[in-house]
Design a protein around this nucleic acid. Structure first.
Length: 465
RNA sequence: GUGGUUGUAGCUCAGUCGGUUAGAGCACCAGAUUGUGAUUCUGGGGGUCGUGGGUUCGAGCCCCAUCUUCCACCCCA
């Protein structure tokens, strides 16, 4: 037998008890919020047919999909000629399944397959891991959890407004105070392209403009020139970078610039309506200010987002006082189900990247003590007789809702005490010959070191309070 | 996918110009203390120096490959 050192694949992680407990706290906040807004849970398989996923995320995205090798003799249907045609062709021959890349496309697939069973508008949330064959980096993993909430079967912009509300509520509940919910509209981006005479090239414009806060005005100009955008067009574009003032002010300025374009005016009226809904909902995202004095919800005409299936509003969330990429993103997609043969169903949704939220909460020390669950009391035993006396009490404590455990063997007291210490168990009960004789149990507070005698009933009552 | 970076005890890291038996702190185990953890004192265990090749009389150190880590692109949660 060769001694093999075990390891896990690049970009994946094990999660110890302390981490899972804290992550569950995040899941809990998100679930409760989603359910409050009328979304219900859905789960789909880790694997999808490869054909379901390909072509939905753009060329870059396709490359990041983890393909699953066919079972059995996966070469049986291939020939030397297939190899000669290159890996792209080969993949289809040896792989029919793939790990899901996000939760939105599997959801669209589910909606199409179950169109007769579900009633629209259909609202669902989904909390499951997704996989991307990306190169790992800070806040970027190959396996990570997404928490999606989507609604399909309605064009109402109330959904967009509610997404803003849910993002604001979840992040506020988690204790974050300095974050920006950025919103834009694909129509605005298309309108910009049209207004500067580069209609139809908004895709390329987006990739470049999206980098504005990273590479600056000059960098964007350079990149646009490399992509062959006319210099005159680039100059026309630049006033957009400096949109300032209130969101309403930005909308007005944009109307002046893009009001004449069909796509631009579609985007602007959509955004106006979202704002109207938010005002009527008395949204805190409109009224709460970040420490920088900016409102939480910010119209950002340079926000682009890569996923190619978005057609309407797009969202992205950034935590301003933490070193982390976007922790949430989403948008409206008008034709995602159309790709599976069900046209005319519009959807909108967004996703939290839980692993990033986790890293941010950790960095900002925002996990509350109450999110750390664990054993409250450890019963220490000395011998068989003390174990006999401890067992009924153990059950009594658990019946009273107190997380408790009995050390499973009569180990040395020191050993049992350090077990409690390391597990941060706040109380220890000693049941030895003295206690059995007197009927009074000794309760030790591990933090203060104080000890107090209790009758069994009083002890349970004391710990259950 | 491109460019760079990292790996030595369970953890964080020293390790000189390539030279004898690879070190420290913390953690762990045992004892001081057979009914008291975290503090103190004493002792102890623990390493194929990521892995596989190569150069050399000799490699933790140099070379190649590979895996992993982190970072910048690309892209994204």
């Amino acid at each position: 037998m060769s001694k093999e050192k075990p390891s896990i694949p690049k970009g994946t992680r094990d999660f110890g008890p302390a981490v899972v407990v804290k992550r569950n706290y995040i899941f809990g906040v998100i679930k409760r919020t989603f359910e409050k807004y009328g979304y219900l849970p859905l789960e789909t398989p880790a694997m999808e047919q490869l054909s379901v996923l390909t072509g939905k995320y753009g060329d870059e995205g396709d490359q990041l999909i983890f393909k699953v090798l066919n079972s059995g003799d996966f070469l049986s249907k291939t020939s030397a000629a297939d190899i000669a045609q290159g890996s792209k062709h080969m993949v289809r021959k040896v792989s029919e399944k793939a790990l899901r890349y996000d939760l939105t496309v599997p959801f669209a697939r589910f909606v199409v397959m179950n169109r007769n069973e579900i009633s629209f508008p259909f609202k669902r949330y989904q909390i499951q891991p997704v996989w991307r064959a990306d190169r790992p980096q800070r806040g970027r993993y190959r396996e990570f959890y997404q928490c999606d909430a989507d609604v399909v079967g309605t064009n109402s912009l109330l959904c967009e407004a509610e997404i803003v509300q849910m993002i604001d509520e979840v992040l506020s509940t988690l204790g974050l105070t300095d974050f920006s919910i950025k919103i834009n509209h694909r129509g605005i981006l298309a309108g910009i392209a049209e207004a500067i005479g580069e209609k139809g090239r908004e895709g390329e414009l987006c990739v470049a403009i999206d980098k504005l806060d990273k590479i600056g005005k000059e960098g964007v100009r350079k990149e646009l020139m490399e992509r062959g955008i006319a210099t005159a067009a680039i100059e026309k574009l630049e006033p957009l970078y400096d949109l300032s003032g209130s969101n309403q002010n930005k909308l007005t300025e944009l109307t002046n610039l893009l009001g004449q374009t069909t796509e631009g005016s579609r985007g602007l009226s959509d955004l106006q309506e979202v704002w109207k809904y938010l005002e009527q909902l008395q949204s805190k995202a409109l009224t709460t200010e970040n420490p920088s004095g900016q409102p939480r919800l910010q119209l950002d005409a340079t926000l682009a987002r890569g996923l190619s299936y978005y057609t309407g509003c797009i969202f992205e969330v950034k935590v301003n006082n933490a070193n982390m990429g976007s922790i949430s993103g989403g948008g409206r997609y008008d034709n995602l189900t159309g790709m599976f043969g069900l046209p005319g169903v519009s959807g909108v949704g967004f996703s939290f990247g839980v692993d990033r939220v986790y890293d941010v909460l950790e960095e900002l020390h925002l996990f509350p003590d109450s999110s750390q669950v664990g054993t409250k009391v450890l019963l220490v035993q000395f011998d068989k007789e003390s174990e006999q006396h401890a067992l009924p009490l153990l059950q009594q404590l658990r019946d009273a809702g107190v997380a408790s455990e009995l050390y499973p063997e009569p180990a040395k007291l020191k050993k049992q005490m350090s077990y409690a210490d390391q597990k941060r168990i706040p109380f220890v009960v000693l049941i030895g010959s003295e206690e059995i004789a007197s009927g009074k149990l000794k309760l030790r507070n591990m933090q203060s070191g104080e000890q107090q005698d209790f009758s069994p009933d009083d002890l349970v009552a004391y710990l259950a309070r």
